[in-house]
Amino acid sequence: MTPRFVIASFLREADVLAGTRAARAAGYEVVDVYTPYAVHGLDQALGVRPSRLGVACFLFGLLGVAGALWLQVWTSAVDWPINVGGKPYDSLPAFIPVTFEICILFAGLGVVLTLFARAGLRPGRTPRAWAPGATDDRFVLVARLTSAVHDTARLTHLLRGHGAVDLAERIGEEER
């Protein structure tokens, strides 16, 4: 069946937190909540799984370390060894500062680019606006009703009870 969405706007973070928990407890699927700032605890209320971006960051850092060490050793000891003040060609201690900097550079840029890719953030993307004000002062909850037993009226009543001020329903539209 075509999916139906209920869109509820809240004015306070405590209300939207309680509303999200109640809707999920009642068996409705809360697709997402759009908020003007990061509301702490909302990710748990929504059941968002812990992000693995930390792993990505670590791997990019590792790549930076490996790449920087390889470049320094290869250029100083293999490709064209030059005697600088009698120091060994592969002067590992002297290679640490650059290795460290490249590690940070790769880890930082890599994790940000991964975030952009994973969250679909890119120039030219037109965001889906379910209700106005989510970047200003509103907390917009979007729930999807998937089965016929789900009742719009019951959900709107539930959300209104938790302080939702504007409620709307949309039928058969795409997500995002």
């Binding site: 960051c57 994790v111 965001p127």
Partner: peptide, 24 residues
């Protein structure tokens, strides 16, 4: 970049911000 305040994005964003602070 088409930001819309999605909690799922905020969740990742907060982690990335923390990681960047830890790196900086």
């Amino acid at each position: 970049l088409g930001w819309n305040g999605s909690t799922r994005t905020w969740h990742r964003y907060e982690l990335v911000y923390l990681l960047l602070a830890g790196l900086a």
